[in-house]
Design a protein around this nucleic acid. Structure first.
Lengths: 341, 341
DNA sequence: GTGAAAGCGCTAACAA
DNA sequence: TTGTTAGCGCTTTCAC
């Protein structure tokens, strides 16, 4: 059924090559000494028969499945898309496959999935922007299941690996840039408050303000959710203030795009009337006109690195969790102008 | 290593419950008759021990892995995101896991992945917007590997299942709508010509033109690639024509967003100066201002249905391939106005 | 350098 | 209704 029975096993190859199954296994795994003549014979037989290892048998035996689980809130935005690109690239070059689980922000799903994954055939687990970590942290530890949290850092143990960009610094830099451009009424669209990265960016913003003796004005802060629509709504609200902000910093590019729309819809221009800066540097930031000035997170690298950390963990389970932080970088494009005098 | 050896097997449960392993297996699989007393005992033992099936052993034995492979060009856009949402929802409710493979439009990768998947542990394969089908179609058939192609239809065999929306009709409707609004110079931003859906939409556009006695003007057609930037470039070019089009139909929403930008960047307004219509109805279409009028594809349903078709195929491999087509629907929002007299 | 054989956890005959 | 048992395809001692 499904797969027809043309399955070629190690035994077929052995017979074809006139050797034993263990020799074939050795060749397949490139392990131990096999004389080059034998190896040759086996390789040929494999060719002729079109042999492919049966991963399930192998992992049943050895315990390793060459599969990594990835838990994401969603899959339809380029922030996540870029990270996944890095992840599956790096995974592929290490002969790992990727099992994808999408929670669509339903927290219960998160726990269920973690249970499934840790008990299923994945060797390790990558969690992207998890929101319900406490619920399964213990179970991960109990099973000593290798895992790394991407863009989440409220962890107080030493067995969990985490990885993220310098959120605080990035926000600080962006705000500072705006201030140096002469802006002192700078609106801020917060991301989801339940995410630490969101909080870190907010406090980077505040710190820059303070360092430049600009009093923090809570009315300039709008609580968004990282989505475009809230960026739009937030900016709309901010623009009704008097005086309105001369610049708006959005906690991510997607909401920055919403901010730009809102500004235009008021008949104002970006950046002539209001400057806008985002966070992430998703591909759209460069494609849009005017190009979005933003704080770049090395998304693809984050994915790649997360995999490396996980793989290291897999090879050496006794290693303590790693804490990796990647630098952000201010990317100046066209959405910020000096404040008018 | 990795997974510690706290693995509870069916045998542990059997011992704990004082029954045989096969009885446990029966309970686990809900198969055959087991007296309710025994079942109770087994269930309890499973509870106590925290037993979980070992999927690899099960599939090594039985041949079914409860994993479906999904091959996508990319993962960072909401068109694909929505489809995936449908896919993994439906998969989850059928106790299937999803193995994700991203090609990033590299055709060689596509073939490699198909080989991996069909020989690996997936029971079936979903291909989203594949571009290199010819290269592995034979191998899929040779292995009788269950598969369904989503949004691809150039198939001339009867063992392959395909699924897509009514692309031709959708484009026809959109164009007709524009025509009835009084537009007769309607620009068109094509998607990737190598995709059949793209061609279908183009011919729907042409057909509507013809049916309303509007001569087809090739200078009004710009070859894009479904991405925002090409939408922007295309519209920019189209707007330089004299007379410029009074409406632009983009082959997908993402490029429509680019079109809108281009129009605004010329100092024109949507829809007052130029009407815009898209295709897909991705979430952004509703979030943007003005709301994007578009042709809705039931993306999530497409994913869901694709899974159903695949699962049917899995259960009954001798079924011939299915051809599923879902209706598109014109969603009128705010980017189209009657043409000025 | 190579082979024989045990066993990973499970299911499905076949017996009882 | 329940138990016994033979593998699924592979890796890995342990012999030779």
């Amino acid at each position: 059924m499904g797969k027809p029975d043309n399955t070629v096993t190690i035994i077929d190859v052995a017979r074809e090559a006139g050797v034993s199954n263990s020799t074939v296994s050795r060749v397949v795994n490139n392990s131990a000494q096999v004389s080059s003549r034998t190896r040759e014979k086996v390789l040929n037989a494999m060719m002729r028969l079109g042999y492919v290892v049966n991963q399930q048998a192998r992992s049943l035996r050895g315990g390793r499945s060459q599969v990594v689980g990835l838990l994401v809130p969603d899959v339809g935005n380029s922030y996540i898309g870029e990270i996944i690109r890095g992840i599956d690239d790096e995974l592929a070059s290490n002969q790992y496959d990727l099992m994808l689980y999408t929670t669509h922000r339903r927290k219960t799903k998160e726990s269920t999935y973690v249970a499934t994954i840790t008990r299923g055939m994945a060797d390790g687990l990558l969690l992207l922007l998890p929101t319900n970590v406490a619920a399964y942290m213990e179970s991960l530890q109990a099973r000593q299941f290798p895992h790394v949290l991407i863009d989440y850092q409220r962890v107080d143990n030493n067995w969990t690996s985490t990885l993220q960009a310098t959120n605080w610094q990035g926000a600080y830099d962006a705000t500072k840039y705006l201030i140096e451009l002469g802006h002192c009424r700078i609106g801020y669209i917060v991301g989801l408050r339940e995410m630490q990265c969101s909080l870190d960016r907010l406090s980077g913003y505040r710190a820059a303000l303070e360092d430049h003796a600009i009093p923090f004005d809570p009315t300039l802060v709008y609580d968004g959710d990282y989505f475009l629509l809230e960026g739009y709504r937030g900016a709309t609200k901010l623009l009704e203030l008097s005086p309105p902000p001369t610049a708006i910093f959005a906690a991510n590019d997607t909401s920055a795009l919403g901010v730009i729309e809102a500004i235009r819809n008021r008949g104002l221009s970006v950046p002539n009337d209001v400057s806008v800066i985002g966070f992430d540097d998703i591909p759209e930031a460069a494609q849009v006109h005017p190009g979005l000035t933003t704080v770049r997170q090395p998304l693809e690298d984050m994915g790649r690195l997360a995999v490396r950390v996980l793989l290291k963990q897999l090879t050496n389970p006794d290693l303590p969790g790693e804490r990796v932080e990647l630098s952000t970088e201010l990317i100046v494009r066209e959405t910020c102008h000096p404040a008018k005098a």
